[in-house]
Simulated scan of single mutants.
Amino acid sequence: MMKQLFDYINSYLPNGISEGEFEIVKNYFTPKRLRKRQYFLQEGDICKYYGFILSGAMRQYCVDDKGTVFIVQLFIENWWVGDRESYTTATPSKYNIDTWEDTELLLITRDDVTELLNRSPAFAKVVRIMDDRNSIANQKRLTSSISGRAEQRYADFVSYHPDFLDRFPQHTIASYLGFTKDTLSRIKRQI
């Protein structure tokens, strides 16, 4: 379990993390298993943990008054999962996060992240890099969703997340991209 986290951290650091420093890091994480369709977070609850996904697939979504599900984010192995706003501000979440497959995670609390950032320079550097990459990815997704054609959004999705195609059903991918399952079917036929 911890080897996967060790390898993940090392993938961000040219000189890697020392075994001694990783011993400090791994003590802040708690393993957790969730069955398919089990909630990691429900709307109205406070997100107390962030999770590093070891295996499995998850989705973050909200549901409108009519019962329509809107997929906000999809997650698979080596991704971090949580509601950042709720986690950071300790306020009730607007989202649900559940498992699409049986999932194994390593959980960490906000207080533990804060302490670990002070104790592990390597972990702090990885978090800064992840934050930068996350900000860039969110900006690209926002730009694509407000100005990109549906065909281009799907092409970008396939390019950036080819592993998601076999892990999530078509209606989930369509919702994530902001269009209907029928639109996605039309786009796939055209391609």
Score class of each variant (00 low, 15 high):
G44M: 01
V81G: 00
P31F: 05
N96V: 08
G51R: 02
V126I: 10
T89C: 14
D131F: 13
R35Y: 10
Q38W: 03
T89A: 15
N27V: 00
A174S: 08
T30F: 05
I173S: 08
P169Y: 01
S147L: 13
N10T: 01
Q42T: 01
Y8N: 09
E23G: 11
D131L: 13
I97P: 02
I76Q: 12
A150K: 14
I9L: 15
S55N: 12
K36N: 08
F123E: 06
L107I: 08
K3Q: 15
F22R: 07
A90E: 14
I146K: 09
S93G: 00
Y12L: 03
N78S: 14
R133F: 10
L142G: 03
Q42G: 01
Y160R: 14
F168M: 05
A137S: 12
E21W: 07
D102K: 01
L184C: 05
D65H: 10
G67I: 03
D98S: 07
D102R: 08
Q139K: 13
L105Y: 04
M1T: 00
R128A: 09
K94P: 01
Q4D: 09
K125L: 08
T68P: 01
S147C: 11
S18P: 10
R133L: 15
R128D: 11
V25P: 06
E101V: 05
L117A: 09
Q73E: 13
A174M: 06
E151C: 07
A174C: 05
Y50L: 15
S135P: 02
F179M: 12
D65E: 12
F168A: 00
S159V: 06
V63Y: 09
G67K: 03
S86A: 07
W80I: 07
F70P: 04
C47P: 02
R84H: 13
W79L: 05
L54Y: 03
K188E: 00
T99Q: 09
R167V: 06
I97G: 08
Q60A: 11
T91S: 14
I24L: 12
N138K: 12
K181N: 10
D83M: 02
G148T: 05
N78A: 13
Y160A: 15
D156C: 03
K125D: 11
I146N: 10
I24P: 10
Q4F: 04
N27L: 06
A174N: 06
Q73H: 14
K26Y: 06
E77V: 02
Y61I: 07
L34G: 06
L142F: 13
T143R: 10
T180D: 03
E151G: 11
F179Q: 04
R186L: 09
W80Y: 07
I108W: 02
S147V: 10
E43Q: 15
